[in-house]
């Protein structure tokens, strides 16, 4: 198991995702002799997990069962321990495409936060790219570095514990893409420019507030970035349902032919249809994504 390479079977030291039910998943580090409690009972790692194939059903001690899934950045995003507000898959997917990430890309990111986006970046740039991620909070930087090791992607990433607005990314002229998710991105635009390749590259800034976007765009234009584009993307989930629709009864047909035989009483009073319904509430705003191209300098 690794976050950048699939395996068939679970081995000791793997991180697996336990599927407990719809939208209820948790990551588990597999250790010989280890035990994990779930609401369906305990999972014994040595007997229930090690050697099993990913995607299989595991019966817990209370008789209920769960599924054990291979980790992916997307499953990690919905099950990781939150240390900060995180980026979700809809934004991540847009960021990945608009930054033109692919195997071999060198990416700078700040802040690392809980590492939700970092894992998705690593998956896409492996096996030849590199991620330089900067996090000013020491505990968060240490924790995420440990997670990268556990997920076997540490060879693809350098974590730096510093303030990007003051000290930059710690690299110069190497990045194909820069991602900023910090309170004052305009203060880091110059450092982003320094980190990027001379030939140019792509930049993305994520900000929840429009005032931040405003200032960032001004800083980007001033620094010579072009093709600025600010957008918002939201995921709409459609719940599939069978619903019954009642049929009206207008009484017996009283047309000219309806004299002799009385029409049989209508059997159906409703019909069932398959349709989708929107959720009662959905995420309407996460943040504005501002993209820009750094020209050759």
């Amino acid at each position: 198991m690794s976050f950048v390479e699939y395996s068939e079977r679970i081995r000791e030291g793997d991180v697996v995702i336990i599927y407990l039910g719809h939208e209820s998943m948790m990551p588990v580090k597999v250790q010989a002799g280890g035990k994990t409690q779930t609401r369906y009972g305990a999972i014994r790692h040595s007997t229930d997990l090690i050697g099993q194939s990913f995607g299989s059903k595991v019966t817990c001690s209370k008789g209920g069962w769960v599924l054990v899934l291979h980790p992916t950045p997307e499953l990690w995003t919905v099950s990781l321990p939150h240390r900060t507000q995180i980026l979700y898959t809809t934004d991540i997917a847009t960021i990945t495409m608009m930054l033109e990430l692919k195997p071999g890309s060198v990416v700078c990111e700040s802040g690392t936060g809980s590492g939700s986006l970092s894992h998705a970046i690593l998956r896409t740039i492996a096996p030849t790219g590199h991620l330089h991620t900067v996090e000013f909070h020491q505990q968060r930087a240490e924790k995420v570095e440990q997670e990268f090791q556990e997920h076997r992607v540490d060879h693809l990433v350098t974590v730096r514990n510093q303030d990007v607005c003051r000290e930059g990314f710690g690299v110069a002229g190497v990045a194909d893409a820069v991602f900023l998710d910090i309170p004052s991105p305009w203060e880091a635009v110059g450092h982003a420019h320094t980190a990027m390749k001379r030939h140019g590259g792509r930049l993305c800034s994520f900000s929840p507030c429009i005032e931040q976007v405003q200032r960032t765009c001004e800083a980007l234009t001033e620094r010579g970035f072009h093709d600025l584009s600010t957008l918002e993307v939201a995921l709409r989930v459609h719940g599939v349902r069978s619903v019954g629709l009642s049929l009206p009864d207008f009484g017996p047909d009283a047309g000219p032919d309806a004299g002799e035989t009385p029409a049989p009483a209508p059997v159906h009073t409703s019909v069932a249809i398959k349709t989708t319904i929107p959720p009662r509430e959905m995420t309407g705003h996460t943040g504005y994504l501002t993209f820009a191209t750094k020209p050759r300098t």
Binding site: V213, L231, A234
Partner: peptide, 15 residues
């Protein structure tokens, strides 16, 4: 598992 039926909504801004 994890079946999901979705579409995405995209809006651009003039800044």
């Amino acid at each position: 598992v994890n079946l999901q039926l979705t579409d995405s909504w995209l809006r651009h801004y003039q800044v």
